[in-house]
């Protein structure tokens, strides 16, 4: 599988575009604090199953795009997403063997770490610290969302023979 010809790579970038779209989509105010970390979820899936196509480089590029979109410091989301991709790549061999709920649990930790880095960078760049516990709510939502994301993206990958 590894080293075979790239196939339907556009589908990956399409899902990234979808992720960017979802991460700025308007939401009711009470749901806003629990907005899932869409980009991190998409990055996790693709680095987990196609590590030879999507890795830290793509994560970084996507992060820069997110920075421009959000108006945060250039490089902030890039750093966070690179970190997510790195951790997933590190755990990739084991993570692929895990049942779904265990994957979700590991993702909870990985995304939690990334969100803490995000919080740290936010405060470092001058904005007053938001309440820490609600700040971690998106992580929980994302972890709960993972099984559905997984099923949807796997069917997309198998149908289009993305490689």
């Amino acid at each position: 599988m590894i080293g075979s010809r790239p196939n339907n790579g556009w589908a990956i970038w399409l899902t990234f575009a979808l992720g960017l779209l979802l991460s700025v989509a308007p939401m009711p105010a009470f749901m806003e604090i629990g907005r899932p970390l869409w980009l991190a979820l998409f990055i996790s899936y693709w680095t987990l199953y196609l590590p030879h196509r999507v890795g830290m480089g793509s994560a970084w590029l996507l992060g820069v795009a997110a920075d421009v979109l959000y108006g945060t410091l250039l490089g902030q989301n890039a750093l966070v997403l690179t970190l997510v991709a790195f951790l997933i790549l590190l755990l990739q061999q084991r993570l692929r063997m895990f049942p779904m709920w265990q994957q979700s649990l590991v993702l909870l930790v990985v995304l939690g770490l990334s969100q803490l880095v995000q919080l740290w960078l936010n405060v470092l760049s001058g904005s007053p610290p938001p309440p820490t516990l609600p700040f971690l709510l998106p992580v929980l939502v994302s972890a709960l969302l993972w099984p559905w994301m997984f099923v949807a993206l796997r069917s997309l990958r198998l149908r289009l023979q993305v490689n």
């Binding site: 890795g55 830290m56 480089g57 970084w60 992060g63 820069v64 410091l73 250039l74 490089g75 902030q76 890039a78 750093l79 690179t82 970190l83 790195f86 960078l121 760049s125």
Partner: peptide, 19 residues
């Protein structure tokens, strides 16, 4: 190695963007 390069790059970008 790649992680290090990308992290350094991000941090450099952030500092340049902020200052």
């Amino acid at each position: 190695m790649r992680l290090l390069a990308l992290v350094v790059l991000s941090v450099a970008l952030m500092v340049v963007d902020a200052r």
